[in-house]
Design a protein around this nucleic acid. Structure first.
Length: 419
DNA sequence: TCTGGGGTCCTAGGACCC
DNA sequence: TCTGGGGTCCTAGGACCC
């Protein structure tokens, strides 16, 4: 059996741990630049605030309903996540961290244990040690564990744990689950399936294999089996990333080459840091720039370009150089740019770097980057920069409602008043 | 005025090879 | 006049996830 453990309204719950007075009150957490709503407490959901709602459109509504608004605090969420995952690892050595707020845990060979009780214990310990509420769903396949988790979340009277361990429960669950809520069925597939008269996960499992294969590829076919109780997905090992991206919207429209160039260099530097963290080099680098497509009154332009590097590298200096060369080939004046990004691909391990005949990554950079990474780790992100970056720039991203980094910075830890 | 960011996998079709 | 067959690799685009 698999367990799927999923934190409830994760980002909102993280904020609440350190401000318990907000329990029972509506909370939303915003994306970068305080742009969109990316997390909502149950109370905020009940107010009808949709996922992805643009913050500026809802400002008055937030105020009227006393919604507590937070900028995203990834230092906090990342640390809280690893605490939760550590606790889950004590229940079984076989765990797959599926995202920042959920994990699959394998309980194969535990036939004589009560999974219900294990689930209750997981919930208790995670909440006791971190303050984060979670729900647990058990089932024989991953897709069904997702379903079980959904049921645990949807029906609070179950106590946050649900086990699908009989045919009757399986049938009942997939009959209850609407097709558009199935894991792996997005908007497009849902539309096409509904057009075929498919309303529930059960209907889907009764479909013709050929149709599923043709319209949803072998992924759809696998999903169909999973929902019927036949295992096709196993726990996955943590693997190195196959591509790494740094893409950001700007705080305003940028129109000059120099402004964009500075951003591109910074994004390339960040890609370099991420590459070095997993000991990879990249062989392809992609750069894109786009104007603000919400502004129909302004001329639009978007362009990307992908460059095959002459040698694999993870040196920020070299990546920045190639990124600027790429930018030069796509930048056009006369537009207000709103977003840009650098993506690195075809990653190969640092250790198996191929020596090229004529050109190679500068070996001196290896040590230099190691020193840069070390300094930035001790003194804070982006303390040591390339000269092509804006040295005065501190943090232009809009983050007006940022909470403290309670768990990762000594100078920001929680204050306790003793009367 | 203001609208996020970072990933994965699969397929069809074209280019190319012998 | 008649004009094969079987591969591989790459890429763009589409779908999905959180």
């Amino acid at each position: 059996m698999f367990a799927l453990v999923d934190c409830n309204n994760f980002y909102a719950s993280c904020e609440r741990v350190f401000q318990p007075s907000l329990n029972g009150k509506p909370i939303v957490v915003l994306s970068n630049n305080d742009g969109c709503v990316v997390a909502r407490s149950n109370e905020a959901k009940a107010l009808g605030i949709p996922m992805g709602a643009p913050a500026f459109e809802f400002e008055k509504m937030f105020e009227k309903n006393s919604v507590h608004v937070f900028s995203s605090n990834y230092a906090l969420y990342g640390d809280m996540s690893s605490r939760v995952m550590n606790i889950l690892s004590t229940f079984s050595p076989d765990i797959e961290i599926y995202s920042i707020d959920e994990a699959f845990v394998s309980f194969d060979g535990c036939d004589y244990f009560s999974l219900q009780n294990i689930g209750i214990d997981m919930r208790y310990k995670v909440h006791k040690y971190t303050g984060i509420p979670v729900c647990v769903g058990f089932a024989p396949t991953k897709a069904l564990a997702k379903v079980a988790n959904r049921i645990a979340k949807k029906f609070p009277e179950l106590g946050g744990v649900y086990v699908i361990d009989t045919v009757a429960k399986l049938q009942k669950a997939i009959k209850w689950l609407k097709i558009e809520d199935v894991w792996g069925v997005g908007r497009q597939h849902a539309k096409r399936l509904q057009a075929q008269g498919i309303k529930t996960a059960l209907d889907f499992t009764l479909m013709n294999d050929a149709w599923v294969k043709k319209n949803m590829s072998i992924i759809g076919l696998r999903l169909k089996k999973e929902l019927s109780g036949i295992r096709t997905l196993e726990l996955e090992e943590i693997q190195d990333k196959k591509s790494i991206a740094c893409t950001r919207s700007f705080d305003r429209n940028y129109s000059t080459y120099d402004e964009i160039k500075e951003r591109i260099v910074t994004y390339a530097t960040i890609c370099g840091e991420k590459l070095r963290k997993q000991d990879s080099c990249c062989n392809i680098l992609q750069v894109f720039i786009v104007t603000n497509f919400f502004r129909q009154d302004q001329p639009q332009y978007s362009m990307g370009i992908s460059v095959n590097l002459p040698f694999p590298t993870n040196s920020s200096i070299e990546l920045a150089k190639f990124a600027v060369e790429a930018l030069d080939r796509i930048f056009k004046t006369g537009y207000g740019y709103k977003k840009a990004g650098v993506i690195v691909m075809e990653l190969t391990p640092e250790t198996s770097k191929q020596k090229m005949l004529f050109e190679n990554s500068d070996p001196k950079h290896l040590e230099l980057m190691a020193v840069m990474d070390k300094l930035n780790k001790s003194y804070g992100q982006q303390k040591v920069k390339l000269a092509a970056q804006d040295l005065d720039r501190t943090w232009k991203m809009k983050r007006e409602k940022l909470s403290r980094r309670y768990t990762t910075r000594l100078d920001e830890i929680i204050t306790v008043y003793v009367p």
